[in-house]
């Protein structure tokens, strides 16, 4: 620890010397320099806190001051596609998205994945992140329209997320309606046969807890929070 500190101090001293040496320019009119591009990069780590709900490849989008869903409002079709089938491609390609990134693979229980998203010369962006709990009809977790302008380089924000219900597909848990490995059933279906309002998720019931037609077992049950999210600005 002490050595590290000394090393740090000597580095500072050295850079002063270099600066002093450079500060010797007789040219009164330096050539005008175009402003350098500034990159803003964010490392997003999503960790799965559930016991039996793999998370679909996470979708990350940077955009202006807007939200991509709202509790009490109908889900967009892009969100429906993500929440029913785990496909984030529409979600990260919504009009107005400045930069996006996607996870490479589903995230298993206990596991995490880190993706990086970068914009250039856009200091005041907002981030939206979403991932489906794949052994459900249309459960997802995420944040939307979260401002990043006050996050300094090297700073990290951490939050844990509740599970939301896209409200676009009834939570029947029936065989053939759940795309995850518990069922291997259908993903996205344009029909909306539920409340058509985004809400917090009531949880899955499972056959073990009294929903006879459910393809799920107690292993797929979850409670809040279900996801740990860490965002670090790296440049």
């Amino acid at each position: 620890m002490v050595n590290q500190q000394r090393f740090g101090l000597s580095l500072v001293a050295l850079s002063c010397l270099v600066l002093t040496a450079c500060d010797h320019n007789d040219n009164d009119e330096p050539a005008p320099m175009p402003p350098a591009d500034v990159s803003y990069s964010y490392e997003v780590t999503v960790q799965n806190l559930t016991q039996g709900q793999p998370l679909s490849p996470v979708g990350v989008a940077l955009h202006g001051d807007a939200v991509m869903w709202e509790t009490g409002m109908p889900a967009s079709e892009a969100l429906e596609v993500l929440a029913e089938g785990g496909d984030n491609s529409d979600f990260i390609a919504v009009e107005g998205v400045l930069a996006s990134a996607t996870g490479a693979a589903p995230i298993g229980p206990g596991s995490s994945e880190t993706v990086t998203v970068t914009v250039v010369n856009e200091p005041d962006t907002f981030i939206s992140i979403a991932t489906m709990l794949v052994n459900t009809n249309d459960a997802f977790a995420g944040i939307t329209g979260h401002g990043l302008s006050e996050l300094e380089v090297g700073q990290t924000m951490m939050m844990v997320l509740p599970v939301l219900d896209a409200g676009t597909e009834a939570n029947s848990e029936a065989a053939g309606t759940i795309p995850g490995p518990a069922d291997g059933g259908e993903g996205y279906n344009a029909e909306r046969d539920d409340a058509d309002l985004v809400s917090f998720h009531p949880g899955v019931v499972s056959a073990d807890d009294g929903l006879m037609m459910s393809a799920l077992t107690s292993a797929h049950r979850f409670d809040n929070p279900a996801v740990k999210l860490t965002i670090t600005r790296t440049e």
Binding site: S172, V205, N224
Partner: peptide, 24 residues
């Protein structure tokens, strides 16, 4: 708890719709 039978069963509450997880 609820159950999946509108008539009969042990509960008059629907287990897929009228459950919740905190916060509410």
């Amino acid at each position: 708890l609820g159950d999946d039978e509108a008539a009969g069963g042990m509960s008059d509450i629907s287990n897929t719709v009228q459950r919740w997880l905190n916060p509410v």
